[in-house]
Design a protein around this nucleic acid. Structure first.
Lengths: 339, 339
DNA sequence: ATCGGGTATGTCAACGTTGTCCTATTGATT
DNA sequence: AATCAATAGGACAACGTTGACATACCCGAT
């Protein structure tokens, strides 16, 4: 900047005024300085600016894995909001590892992120997050809350969504519905399991633990686990996949087994090509883009000083019937074909 | 930091020494200072550090759209390399918009990114990139090069990959193969088209422009375009999708039309569930994770001062036959059933 | 003629860190 | 006893920017 000042024969401060477009600068000087800036290829050093001003116009996003379509869509939505408001977005995948997640958050924080959007990894230490919050870093949690932390959350209505899914299967004549969910330590997984159980209870169906698998989808040995569920004496006639990772895994496995007749299938969270498969896959769709957008807007409001009470936004899910969830089960009420 | 110094009764510099672990500090002082740091929750201000030191340990990644599975996997790979070497990753989607891309690059650059990994949007101004390069910002281009820019590239072997795909279809008896590629201004699209044509030429098949569509996959009116290609007098018996966006679009459209018999289908770039569809979708698979990893490693070497000649890494593609590409066409050589 | 307010520009300090240079103590070697 | 090297710590400037404050000019209103 001092080079520019020297080149255009004005003081440092005047160049600063031109760069920032604040204060009084004559048209003539403005032109001279802008020409010098152009010619020297000057760009403001953001570190110095941020050091001086204290504001960074940066937010961070920490989620499980960008490569997961759910999170990548969410990321893109956050990006768009950030860009529209001239914020820079830092993002990184925690890989569902609390230590890695902590490293990322510390790194973002020491880089002066004004706020963070976090999909907390299981095992995240609430005390650590609280310390960051106390240090003045706003946070919005997406997809999952952190127990004991008072901060805004944007969550899907996992429990009711899962209940409506299970009810849908029950309505199509199923009583033995297998549920495959993520590890029980994952918030969404237990919420969805609870929803599934709600629906069973409401329909007067006993819970059968033989039908429930709670495990990280990509874990070793899951193929054997799936087989053991499908091959039991009184096998399930319908399958409820608790997230899109499980959906893909189960569909792949079902195809490989060539299981016939095909059990009814319903997945939590939509996925690409779910409509192209035959039958189309019935899903409880979430809206990751809306989740990201809402979280980002909420965070940016917080960052700009909005200190209204903590908000907990719950996004409704939507059942999309495409065929697989409408495969009739043995308890289907038939109009009168029995007579 | 001065608070810490005051609390532990030492000078600023000594605290700095403790924080950075350089220079001589007695065990006793070290302990006192560390206790004060812990107690005050001190965290080094990275801006000041970077302002002083000039080094940022940050790299940037600019690509078309994180929500695209190809790029999201690539992003994750870059992230992992960056994290392993204690670099911070900035990333943003250009949305295939040169102006947005430029804004992003400028923002990354003024934040002192040591280097950039770029999947250039079409229409990117080479002069602008050259100016950044001259300013000392290393760059590695992935997926697409920028004509006229001397910088490292990590690209898939699009042309040979596409040629092998088209040859595969020809080998299964097809002569009329439709090709749907991204807009002709996109490097990979024209490379793949060229590969497709290479294979036709090698097999002595005339090119028919009626069979070629080059357009942004999500453009309005593409459904009509697809129909016009499929419904011509001498319709294609095989379809070659030039990228995964087109694959999804085409498969969805084919299902909606209920076209029978199903044309043979082959897609460039693999996608999730390609193996679960029936028939499984034959693809020319790229390796986005390898692309991201190689690019990141290359960039980090450059950033650390490696000034060996520019490297152009070309990644081989791999044909994965799953059924759809092996549907026989009318020119299939049959053992002797003709007699 | 004087004042006041808008316009235009400059000076200086400060943001929090670290590199350079300086001083002082210790203990072992000459 | 003098010297040297290793150890330990401090003072100060500098990184590039901007906020606070000061200065000076011009023009219209008193």
């Amino acid at each position: 900047m001092s080079d520019v000042a020297a080149a255009s024969g004005v003081s440092l401060k005047t160049v600063s005024r031109v760069v920032n477009g604040v204060g009084y600068v004559s048209a003539e000087t403005l032109e001279t300085v802008q020409a010098a800036i152009e010619q020297l290829g000057f760009r403001r050093n953001e570190f110095a600016r941020q050091l001086r001003q204290g504001t960074t116009a940066t937010i961070g996003l920490v989620l499980e894995d960008v490569a997961d379509p759910f999170y990548s869509v969410l990321t893109r939505a956050v990006e768009d909001v950030a860009l529209a408001q001239d914020y820079l977005l830092l993002s990184a995948s925690s890989a569902e590892d609390a230590a890695r997640s902590r490293r990322i958050i510390e790194s973002f924080s020491s880089r002066g992120a004004d706020g963070l959007i976090i999909a907390p990894a299981r095992g995240t230490d609430p005390a650590f997050l609280q310390a960051e919050l106390d240090a003045g870093c706003s946070m919005v949690f997406v997809d999952r809350p952190v127990p004991g932390i008072r901060a805004d959350t944007v969550l899907a209505d996992n429990r009711r969504g899962a209940a409506s899914g299970a009810a849908h299967l029950i309505g199509h004549g199923h009583r033995r519905i297998a549920f495959f969910g993520d590890a029980a330590s994952v918030y969404t997984a237990t919420e969805r399991l609870a929803g599934y159980r709600d629906a069973l209870t409401a329909a007067g169906i006993d819970h059968d633990d033989q039908l429930v698998v709670m495990a990280v989808p990509h874990a070793e040995g899951n193929a054997a686990v799936i087989d053991s569920v499908l091959d039991q004496d009184d096998p399930p006639t319908a399958i409820f996949a608790g997230n899109n990772r499980w959906s893909v895994l189960l569909l792949r496995h079902l195809k490989a087994r060539g299981t016939r007749p095909l059990p009814a299938f319903l997945g939590f969270d939509d996925f690409e090509l779910g409509d192209v498969l035959d039958p189309g896959i019935t899903v409880i769709a979430q809206d990751p883009a809306a989740m990201g957008q809402l979280a980002a807007e909420l965070l940016l409001r917080r960052v700009s000083g909005d200190d209204r009470p903590t908000q907990h936004i719950q996004l409704e899910t939507r059942l999309i019937a495409r065929g697989s969830g409408e495969i009739a089960g043995p308890f289907t009420a038939r109009p009168s074909s029995a007579s």
